[in-house]
Design a protein around this nucleic acid. Sequence first.
RNA 1: GCCGCGAUGGCGGAAUUGGUAGACGCGCUGGACUUAAAAUCCAGUUCUAGCGAUAGAGUGAGGGUUCGAUUCCCUCUCGCGGCACCA
Length: 800
Amino acid sequence: MYDHLSLEKKWQKMWQDNHLYRVGEDANKPKYYVLDMFPYPSGLGLHVGHPKGYIATDILARLKIMQGFNVLHPMGFDAFGLPAENYAIQNKMHPKIATDLNVANYKRQLEILGFTYDWEREINTTDPKYYKWTQWAFLKMFEAGLVFESYEPINWCSSCKTGLANEDLEDGKCERCGTLIEQKPMRQWVIKITDYAERLLADIDKLSDWEESIKEMQRNWIGKSEGTEINFSVSGSDLNIKVFTTRVDTIFGCTYVVLAPENDLVEQLKPQIKNWSEVEKYIKAVKNKTTLERTDLNKDKSGCKLEGVQATNPFNGLAVDIFVADYVLNSYGTGAVMAVPAHDERDFEFAQKYNIIIKKSINPISPEEAPACYTDDGTLIDSGEFTGLDSASARSKMMDWLEKNNFGNRKINYKLQDWVFSRQRYWGEPIPIVHCEKCGAVALPYDQLPLTLPNVESYEPSGTGESPLATISDWVNTTCPKCGGPAKRETNTMPQWAGSSWYYLRYIDPNNDQALVDKEKEKYWSPIDFYVGGAEHATRHLIYARFWHKFLFDIGAVNYEEPFLKLKSVGLIMGEDGRKMSKRWGNVINPDEVVEKYGADALRLYEMFMSPFSDSSAWNTNGLIGVRKFLERVYNLAVSQDPDSKVVVNLLHKTIKKVADDILDFKFNTAVSALMILVNAIYDQGGKMNKNNYALFLQIIAPLAPHLSEELWSNVGQKDSIFRSSYPAFDPSLMKDEMVTIVVSINGKMRANLNLPAGVSEEEVVKVAMENEVVQKWLEGKEIVKKIFVPDKLINIVIK
RNA sequence: GCCGCGAUGGCGGAAUUGGUAGACGCGCUGGACUUAAAAUCCAGUUCUAGCGAUAGAGUGAGGGUUCGAUUCCCUCUCGCGGCACCA
């Protein structure tokens, strides 16, 4: 009887005891580094969807091991951050204790699925020996001038009581808790990730083995746009309003200029503004809006005219009115735009509401009727010396003109914003900076790392914008490393994404206390050959990690410029009701129970079989039972000394090839189905299989169902693990079909099948086809126009 | 609005470079075994007509290219994901 429970435990123990997955650098073997996005251990434990990606990489790792590769397949835990801390607060536990418990539970859950991890390389981002190097990298960035202190308004989540980066938002809400985000000015540490925008964008093209959708998401997120900065001089003042536009060709249609409410220029213009109280009132009202309210596209545009000032268009010397309006964002471009209502829909909407002149300066190229607001390229009209040019060449000539006359310049902008790197929370890496009254912000010397997170009585967020660390005065008060005078430690902590931005490097060399990673070891293992994780990380973790890695490359800490060669995203597993698995719907399937009842191999195989890997699909217990039945059929196969039928031998060799090809291609569903077809064929010949072929069969199913195949492998007298054997080679001569089915179609419609020897000639096929009754019936009284012959496939007879 | 992806039986899904549409699994129907049920095994299962051989229709809709289109091209509809007052 297939007793999955005892069998699986037995082999898991054997694998651990024999260190089956312990790896080191081995110059004689090709290396293969396959990695999962490491989990964030929450208090709820794993549900059945979490291990899907881990199962896939485990199958790949086992196959690669059997194919002779030196395989690194590690696992660890990303345990700092808000969810862990919130869970701890809710359960009135210290975050450290809660995290340790959760990690232990996750590890147990992973172990019963029989994964190949080398636990000697386990890492945990909350371990001071680990985060020493997170802090080290931060200091290196500080040294390189990539880190700065800012007091700009940032995204503030009033529920999590912390500032957040742009990447942490979803729809103007906190990605974690769904609370509406407000803008709050606050002292914060910011990393100039925008310095890397161009490289992050350009190098996407080198990532040929990434899914196109993920690359496209990153391109959109980085959001490069090429345009022009133009100075509009302010009448009666020596101030200039600098605007950014991608459509300088429309500038003769500019009828007003808009400043973002937060733009510093507004304050500078105050002395000349006659309706200041009104303007001030408008700005205040805007500041009270949440991000969501401000970015709601459906709302009416609002603004306020600055009375008493005007801006001059350098192209025609005409003065236009100036407005403040919150449809212009201070965080993008120059925080000011030239408004061309005739050729921009937002400006058009605003101009209509405030009765501003709409002046056309572009005509459509084709003689179509131009809409009131025409936003495409066209031919310039009423545009001085540029009249008659097409938009593209006008842009180029107008940019030249601006640069020649010092009115402006070409400019590239990115939507990507600098990385807000400080959190006003307890459970994160302390930022290794000291504030000295005399010297300002001073980096902690490297020999003082790690700066460990102190224990606190109360780790709950204060909500005042200060981290709970601020209350520990003997930790906060220190001396300045530069002048030795009194100083205070930085009390903000790093965001959750810090530790996960480089963890994959640490697996290579997890215990090194001299360097983040040994460069020789890194050269051997990097880059990661196959990386698997959720698509939700496309514009978060995967941007941060690429950035962090490029920085490490620039300071010479690593050998390669991109960390992840190939990337595949894992599709969600929904509940049986088709909804996302959640406590709220009561549709969560726990892997522990599945393993208990049906076995880890059944779970593994089912999750691979249920749908294409990157698609999401709903859990179906009947499907799982089907796979379990298949495993029982495998278990019950009999071994014999008799030779197998030609059909089985042929199919076996085809399957050896197909399963390996499909696994490497992450097409697990068809790999499993190929194995089912093979097993069905074995049952068709009586359910027994020749001993030698049986061994080959076990080897090809081993990566997918490791416990079962290990058991059956030892049942036929094998002493060593099946994973120390080599994946079988297929024999092309045995794969070849002797007979082929040739389709006879008439006018493209299938009418008959002919079973003929492979390689049969066209003449022979035609001859046999003409003798066929059905074919004769269809050809009766018709004229044959032509015949198309595809060797070993079909003959198509075209008739009239 | 922009970008990307997708649409195939009752369901999940298969189908090299265009060449038998529906592999494999689930579900369902019938049968064997059983006092009975479960389990297992066997047969069937795209739709329509027919006892049947067979015929017709059929891969979101419409058109096109081709001897032949799920596959290539055009137009459209719907769904999913991402971005979004980004000037």
